[in-house]
Write a protein that binds this DNA or RNA. Sequence first.
DNA 1: GTCTATAACTAGATAGAC
DNA 2: GTCTATCTAGTTATAGAC
Lengths: 233, 233
Amino acid sequence: MNDKQTTKDRILNAAECIFADKGFDGSSLRDITTAAGVNLASVSYHFGSKNGLIEAVFARHLGPMNAARIALLDRVEEQVGEGSPAIELVLEAFIRPVVMHDLAEHGANDAFMRLMSRCLNEPPTHLEQFEHHFDALMNRFHAAFSRALPDHSPNEIFWGVHFTLGIMHHTLHVLSHLHHLPFCPSESADAQTVVERLIAYAAAGMKAQHGSGVSVNEPCGGTLSFLNSSVNL
Amino acid sequence: MNDKQTTKDRILNAAECIFADKGFDGSSLRDITTAAGVNLASVSYHFGSKNGLIEAVFARHLGPMNAARIALLDRVEEQVGEGSPAIELVLEAFIRPVVMHDLAEHGANDAFMRLMSRCLNEPPTHLEQFEHHFDALMNRFHAAFSRALPDHSPNEIFWGVHFTLGIMHHTLHVLSHLHHLPFCPSESADAQTVVERLIAYAAAGMKAQHGSGVSVNEPCGGTLSFLNSSVNL
DNA sequence: GTCTATAACTAGATAGAC
DNA sequence: GTCTATCTAGTTATAGAC
C-alpha cells in the first residue's frame, strides 16, 4: 500500500491473469506471487488457501457484473409492464454487461474476460464454490426469456437459453484471442459491435427454436434426409 | 491383452475419462493408471510422457470425427454443384458428427464429448499440440459457409462461424451434464433432436448476421438505445 | 511388456522471526 | 503484515530387475 496497490490487490490482479492463462490447477501460488512481486506466504495470510484466492478473484467481479445484468432487466420489465418484453432487450440485459465488464472497469484489461471464458470447463470441484453467484440471476432471466417467447415450450426455452450461453461464452474466448485466429478480418474487434452481432444471432436463433426438434424419426425435416445414410458419424 | 483390452487401450480409456473430469493439469498419471488397473510406468512405455498420452487420446477420435465432417460436406457440395448450398446442410455436416461421435462409436459413453467440451479452454500450451487436426477442416468449412451465405461480408461470416462453434461447444457440455442442470425438462436428452435444434438456431443466427453490427455509434438500432445510459455495465 | 523402487522436482501450507 | 525456512505430500519420469 505504498503508492501503488495493496498486497491483496496485487495478488488478485496477478492471480486473475495467471488463472486465465493456465487454469486453476495449472497455476501455482509461486507463479502468482512472483508475478505479483509479493511473498509466497502472503496468499495464506490474506486468502487462507488457494481456493480462498480463487473465490476472491471471482467474487470481486461477479457481484457487480451480475448486479448490472439484473438492473438492466429491471428496466426492461419496468418498461413493458404486464406485456411481453422484446427478446432483443432481454438478451441485451443478459449479454452486454458480461462482454463489456472488463472494458468498462479496467480499460483494455481482458484478464477477467479470459478467465470467464475458461470457467465453464474447469473441473466441477472448482466451479461449485461460486455457482451461488448465478442462481438468482438465472432464475430471473429464465422467467424473462419465457415471457419474451410465450409460445415456446419449456424445452425450447431451455435449449435456447443454453445455446445463448454458449455463444456468449465462446465470444469471450474469441475476443480475448482475436489476434491468433484464422479468417479474422481486421475490423472485428470492437466489443460494442460484437454485442450487437451476438444479440442479432441469439434473437434469431431463439425465435427459430419454436417448432424445431420435433421430428425425431425424420431427423431434419425432409430436405436434409439424404445425409442420414451410410456416412460414418 | 488377456481377454479384455490391451494395456494401451485401458490407459487411453481411463485417461479420456479422467481428463474430462479434472482437466489435464488436474489429472495425475497415478489417477489414470490406478483407474485403468495398470502400472504407473506403463504410460511412459506406451506414450513416452503425459503430453504424449494427451495427444494420443485426441488423435484416436479427432481423425475419424473430422473425416466424417469432411465426407458429409463433400456430399453436400457434390449435390449443389456450382450453386450455393443451403446453410442448414453445411451446418449439419459441421455439427452432427461432433455431437453424434460418442453415441455412434461407444453407445452411451460420453467421455470424449465431455473432453471436447473442456478443450477450448485448456491452457494454449496443451492445445497447440493438436491444433493441426482442425486446420484443413476449418478451411473447407469456412469456404462452404461463405458460399452458402454469399451476401455476407467476411466479418459476418467470421462471427457467424464463431458463434456457431460456441453453441456446438456449449451443447457438448450441456449434454454431458444434463442431469445437474436447473430448468431441464425431462424430454431434453435425445441427441438427434438436439442436433436439429442446434441447426435451427445456428441457421437462423447466421442468416441474421447480415446487416447486424453496422451501427457502432447507435448501439442497437434505436429500439434498444434506452439501455445505453447510466446503468453500470 | 510389466513391474518395483526411487530420483529429481514441485506443490500448498505453516511456524516463527521480525 | 511481511518475511525466511521448512514440512509434508504429491508430481513426472526413469533405471533396472524380471
